[in-house]
Design a protein around this nucleic acid. Structure first.
Lengths: 102, 102
DNA sequence: ACAAGAGGTCAAAAAAACATGACTACCAAA
DNA sequence: TTTGGTAGTCATGTTTTTTTGACCTCTTGT
């Protein structure tokens, strides 16, 4: 699939909204706001999530420039995902969303 | 299914994000920001959208308190959907989202 | 009387998203 | 050498969302 589906909607918020939607992405984002996150940590902490879904969500958030994947070459060599600058710019928006009551 | 699926995610932005996600909701919202909207107008203006999808989206936006359905008892009797107060409170958030560049 | 517009509903099919279980590779400790 | 942790992939299946096309009601125009 070459992602030629959206038919020019001219709705600028749409892409970002799509990037943030999905069953696990809001939670992943939330974790990422509090510092670097790791795959197996998310898998442990986010109840109900599975490897495949997390892997897909992380890849999408990465490809949309919300998260950066960093290989940490320390002792037990692992991978970290950090909020990018673009990701940071979403933080206040998330906070506002949280402020809107039902 | 009795909708016992979300497993208490404790992510406050999640519900609202879900309310606004879906293939047509962002566009419907955008139209609604510029004044009352009508079913067949949306059907004509939003390219690619079909009755069923719009009906479903409108119903969801209404049940989430974003839009209000109003029956206008004028000359050719019709129905209008307006942004509710809750809907209005999302406008600045949308504007911010639009301000975040790729 | 008949067509056409407004505002839908319904059942079914197709597409997209999500879940499951098996499997992989790398590295370190026992 | 087997176990355990990290970070995934792959094929397959299930579930949810979206689309399709037929149908419906009410009102106005011809």
């Amino acid at each position: 699939m070459t992602t030629k589906n959206q038919a020019e909607s001219t709705c600028p918020a749409e892409g970002l909204l799509k990037t943030l939607s999905g069953k696990w992405k809001p939670q992943i984002f939330r974790f990422a706001v509090n510092g670097p996150i790791r795959f197996n940590t998310l898998l442990r902490e986010i109840e109900g999530a599975n490897k495949q879904s997390l892997a897909t969500a992380l890849k999408e958030l990465e490809s949309e420039g919300i998260l950066h994947k960093v290989i940490i070459s320390e002792k037990p060599l692992h991978i970290e995902y950090n909020l990018s600058e673009r990701g940071q710019s979403l933080v206040p928006i998330f906070q506002q969303l949280e402020g809107i009551v039902k």
